[in-house]
Amino acid sequence: MPAGTLYRGREGMWSWVAHRVTGVLIFFFLFAHVLDTALVRVSPESYDTVIATYKTPLVNLMEYGLTAAILFHALNGLRVIAVDFWSRGPRLQKQMLWTVVGVWVVLMAGAFYPILEHTLLSWFGK
């Protein structure tokens, strides 16, 4: 039986897809974030009210997810720059992607407690 004809690119294609998806997600968050910060111009109370939603468990978890998206987009973006400007970049693109994934895993593990501390302390106490 012949293999399917759907293009299944390897590291190159999937990192491109992930870069795109994380980029769009971050852009939409950015709109919301500028709008919520603009409430400091309205009153301290309205700003503190909207920031209170940032401290709920669900949104706190979404902040961890946002950090995941931003960290991947940042590290993979540096890889894209290396592919474009470094003479050995194109040949080492796969190795650089796995380096990006490795650094991302380490940083995300390190960020887990500090970012979710607020929720974890409210659930399990000090």
Partner: peptide, 8 residues
């Protein structure tokens, strides 16, 4: 303290 400290 992460997000806890953020306010006006």
């Amino acid at each position: 303290g992460g997000v806890s400290k953020i306010n006006f």
